[in-house]
Design a protein around this nucleic acid. Structure first.
Length: 677
DNA sequence: GATCCTCGAGTTCT
DNA sequence: CTCGAGGATC
């Protein structure tokens, strides 16, 4: 048996145990993990697999034989009268099917198993002891056998009753998950940032860190919530037949149970539940990392029993991780429409939150320095409810010796012009202006954008070719209007039909050309949709605006000296005047269809903020309907916001609304308001 | 002068 | 969606 394969397995097992112990310490004791949960799971699974293959290598102190790490010394140790178990994990549908099969085989004579299913919250497992209905002790799970006494902090959590309702038993020990609402977590981090205090990477770490505070005053103002999910030691309570019935009883005693708890039948029911919750995941106000299935009948649970520290009657079915570790292969600088140089991290591709991520923006050099990202670093990537991946932090411990600092280039990577960063500004810019091909391309893309002149089918690839062709077919937006189908058909990946369609789309864009859209399309610095509309309304015609002085431009509402200077300078430049002259030969500006909001109508004076997606209409349509009734739509939530309309997969704006106490409308209520208005 | 609000700009992947 | 910065307001 002492083959070389077994020897190298033994070495690998030792190495894995060392690593896992280290990560346990970081995670459980320091609350500052060095690796993502997914990576930790991988190490543990590899170890498990090796131990299964070579049972001789299993030792009592192997990480697979216990749950967590030893408690820190400052908090009192609590011995759990009944161990707090951990759960086996399932990652694929087949794992769940296999689990269900094992359960049925062990129970014999049972065709279909009834499961109680609920989301698995990403928080902190706590044991709560109630004696004669009064909370006497709360303890963390610790290593499953011994935890820490955190009663002083748990008492500050409003969702945890200190006295139970009804007639509870003499002794009731319940288990629950203490977690932080995402909204509260963000608000808390924001405040910490303002005070220059330490921030937390995610709600779970924030919860773990706060609950293990020694000073309960610190925990008291933190936004905790709790769901109870299980029963431990009891005295004076005749348990009902089912787990779900026991939870129902807990609920009646005032202990919060997940509202998403559901009874399902067989593996099929479990998998369907998994998909239901997966679809809801992004819109839940708290983070979950999977769902848990438990055999519902206590008799069956008893018959199934335990393996090591995990019950045979329950399993956690995990979702794809939101966070992963990967390596920064390089940092490149992209040049935007305004010349802004944006550092983008090129990553070793990594699967996060359901997609493969290979790039992540670092925004600007301040951000690069703040996070201290270097080439070669291992970083944590997160792709949570929001779509855009984010570099959460660098794992400094894993920094290779030859890691390279990121330097702002002194020359534009596209055109070679000088790069300048103004005093006090976060962004650095290429000074090449329209000499720079990147800026020219972006200017045209902006011009053709949906909110500008809306030229359908003019995408990045086509623009690249038009600008790079020799001689260039397109130097400025005005050149678009003289393109012929023959010229376009000669480009790569362009057939005759597509070429004709594009010519038609360019022709059709003339109809979209109202003054505000046209001004927006020009891409003047600091002139977005709102400012373009304000300028258009104030001056009424392009001629008036072109002839205006800087002072006159400043008279426009919401335009100050900085924006006025940009606008004035833009119209003074010869190149811009030429382009505008050429454009106006092709494009007839339409008179505006709709007047500016007049302060009339049933929703006058009300400000709306839209978040998430509505079933019955697009966000644009919703905005139009609000405007039609005299209301205003704003982009961000503030104290002045009247309503936040939250559709499916609502994001941080919903959180902000809850924080500020702004009224939130769901789709139904919103539609009702529109109808009654 | 400080604070709040709003707007603009840039970004990922399928 | 998030961040930074311009503008308005107190």
């Amino acid at each position: 048996m002492a083959t070389s394969a077994a020897k190298s397995a033994a070495a690998r097992v030792r190495e894995l145990r060392k690593q896992i112990e280290h990560h346990n310490y970081r995670y459980h004791v320091l609350d500052d993990p060095e690796v993502s949960d997914a990576e930790y799971d991988r190490l543990l699974r590899e170890l498990k697999a090796l131990e299964e293959q070579y049972p001789d290598l299993v030792t009592v102190d192997s990480p697979t034989q216990r749950v967590g790490a030893t408690p820190v010394s400052e908090l009192q140790e609590v011995v759990h009268t009944r161990p707090m178990l951990s759960l086996d994990n399932a990652f694929a549908d087949e794992d769940v099917v296999a689990f269900d099969r094992r359960v049925r085989e062990r129970l014999e004579d049972v065709e279909q198993i009834e499961y109680s299913a609920e989301p698995k919250l990403d928080g902190l497992a706590i044991s709560f002891r109630y004696e004669s209905g009064r909370l006497v002790q709360a303890a963390t799970r610790g290593d499953g056998l011994r935890g820490e006494d955190v009663t002083h902090n748990v008492r500050t959590i409003k969702a945890v009753p200190t006295v139970l309702r009804g007639s509870p038993p003499k002794l009731l020990e319940v288990r629950g998950e203490v977690f932080m609402l995402i909204a509260g977590f963000k608000a808390m981090n924001q405040r910490a940032l303002e005070r220059g205090e330490r921030t937390f990477v995610n709600p779970r770490n924030a919860a773990a860190g706060s609950i293990r505070q020694l000073d309960p005053r610190l925990a008291a103002d933190r936004p905790f919530d709790v769901f109870f999910y299980g029963v431990g030691e009891t005295d004076g309570w005749k348990l009902p037949a089912r787990h779900s019935e026991a939870l129902q009883q807990l609920r009646e005693w005032g202990l919060k149970v997940s509202p998403l708890l559901k009874i399902v039948q067989g593996a099929e029911g479990c998998l369907q539940y998994y998909r239901e919750i997966g679809a809801k995941r992004a819109s839940l106000p708290y983070e979950i990392d999977g769902v848990v299935y438990k055999v519902n009948r206590f008799v069956q649970q008893r018959d199934l029993g335990f393996v090591a520290r995990a019950p045979r009657w329950a399993i956690a079915h995990k979702f794809p991780a939101h966070e992963e570790n990967t390596v920064v292969k390089g940092v490149e600088f992209q040049v935007g429409r305004t010349g802004a140089l944006t550092p983008v991290a090129r990553l070793e591709p990594v699967f996060v939150g359901g997609v493969t991520v290979s790039n992540a923006t670092l925004h600007n050099m301040d951000e690069v320095r703040r996070k201290d990202v270097r080439i070669g670093d291992t970083v944590v990537i997160r792709r949570a409810g929001d779509v855009i991946p984010e570099v959460v932090k660098v794992i400094v411990e894993r920094r290779p010796k030859d890691a390279q600092e990121v330097e702002l280039p002194s020359k534009c990577p596209v055109c070679g012009s000088a790069v300048e960063r103004e005093e006090g500004e976060a962004v650095a810019r290429c000074t090449g202006g329209l000499v720079c091909a990147a800026q020219r391309k972006e200017a045209i893309r902006h011009f053709a954008g949906r909110r500008a002149l809306d030229i359908d089918g003019l995408g990045t690839k086509i623009i690249d070719q038009l600008v790079e062709s020799d001689p260039p077919l397109v130097r400025s937006p005005a050149d678009l209007y003289v393109l012929t189908a023959e010229q376009l058909a000669a480009l790569d990946r362009m057939g005759e039909k597509s070429a004709e369609n594009l010519v038609e789309a360019i022709e059709a864009s003339k109809k979209h050309a109202t003054l505000p859209r046209f001004l927006y399309a020009l891409g003047i610095r600091d002139v977005g949709e709102a400012t373009a509309a304000a300028l258009g309304n104030h001056f009424g015609s392009l001629k008036e605006l072109q002839g205006a002085t800087e002072e006159q431009i400043q008279e426009v509402p919401d335009v100050g000296p900085v924006v006025a200077a940009h606008v004035y300078k833009f119209f003074q430049e010869k190149h811009n005047r030429d382009v505008i002259a050429a454009l106006t030969r092709h494009v007839q500006l339409q008179s505006q269809a709709r007047k500016a909001a007049t302060g009339e109508g049933p929703l006058a004076g009300k400000t709306f903020v839209l978040t998430g997606s509505l079933d019955s209409m697009s966000r644009d349509e919703a905005g139009d309907r609000i405007a039609a009734l005299g209301g205003k739509v704003a982009g961000s939530v503030s104290k002045k916001t009247s309503y936040v309309v939250a559709g499916a997969e609502a994001g941080s704006k919903l959180a902000k609304a809850q924080e500020l106490g702004v009224e939130v409308l769901d789709e139904k209520k919103f539609l009702k308001l529109l109808e009654s208005g």
